[in-house]
């Protein structure tokens, strides 16, 4: 579904992505792990059109999407749960969901997806008229996932959804991602929480300072000595 090839991204003089390539096949859950500053967010932000690439390819179902404006990329089926959730604090929960469906016009289908989000997150349903800024961290993360689902994406990308959440909530978030994936959605998950991500993933990439240094199935990387040392605490 998603194929990234030889992607190079610079921030001024910083070579943030140094010719990375990766694949996210349809129906799979693929994770990208790596330490802080490795370039994980940059990868997702380039995919969403927020950051410009120097060169390379990003193909979605065979079509080049690199260089398209973000709204066009959303319309083609890529949704993002941004790092730090980025709920709009001034909008109500319902409006936060509505803006997730910004590219869509079919009201009946939109409200069907809203119902789906409510089934997934009953807590969110209880708070529809509250301002996004009044939700707890965990609730905001649920809302961020729900908001992304509102675009009815082919590919759901998540940037460190477990960041800053209490351990119990982290488990909840990964369960939800698993559930969403089992419903047939393709997922591209960026994480620092390597253990949880690898357990979930069909396939995984490890990123270090702008390069992909290792790849394999989630199981393979869980067994890999290098990975165990660097990311799983021995």
């Amino acid at each position: 579904m998603l194929k990234i090839k030889n992607l190079n991204v610079f921030y001024g003089g910083i070579h943030a992505l140094q010719g990375i390539s990766l694949d996210v096949p349809k129906g799979k859950i693929v994770t990208l792990i790596g330490a802080n500053g490795a370039g994980k967010s940059t990868t997702l932000r380039t995919l969403s059109g927020l950051v410009k690439a120097r060169d390379g390819q990003i193909k979605l179902d065979g079509e080049e999407i690199l260089g398209l404006p973000s709204n066009e990329i959303v319309a083609r089926g890529v949704a993002m749960v941004p790092e730090g959730r980025k709920i709009f604090p001034n909008l109500t929960v319902r409006e936060n969901l509505a803006i997730g469906a910004f590219q869509r016009n079919n009201k009946a289908e939109i409200s069907k997806d809203e119902e789906l989000v409510f089934t997934l997150f009953p807590r969110i349903k209880e708070r529809v008229s509250q301002k996004g800024g009044t939700l707890s961290g965990g609730e905001q993360q649920m809302l961020a996932v729900g908001r992304a689902l509102m675009s009815h994406p082919k590919l759901l990308t998540l940037d460190e959804p477990s960041l800053g959440l209490a351990p119990l909530l982290v488990k909840g978030v990964f369960d939800i991602i698993k559930h969403i994936h089992e419903e047939g959605r393709t997922v591209f998950l960026v994480e620092q929480n390597a253990f949880a991500a690898l357990k979930l993933a069909d396939y995984a990439y490890v990123m270090e300072v702008g390069k992909i240094t290792l790849q394999g199935t989630g199981q393979e990387l869980l067994q890999n000595d290098q990975v165990r040392k660097a990311y799983l605490g021995g």
């Binding site: 927020l50 404006p69 709204n71 319309a75 941004p82 980025k86 001034n90 909008l91 803006i99 910004f102």
Partner: peptide, 20 residues
């Protein structure tokens, strides 16, 4: 109007929601 209120808080996040 929704796009306006969202963009007034956060351009990038509004963008990845599909706002022009």
């Amino acid at each position: 109007g929704l796009a306006m209120r969202a963009a007034s808080r956060d351009f990038d996040t509004a963008r990845v929601m599909g706002v022009d």
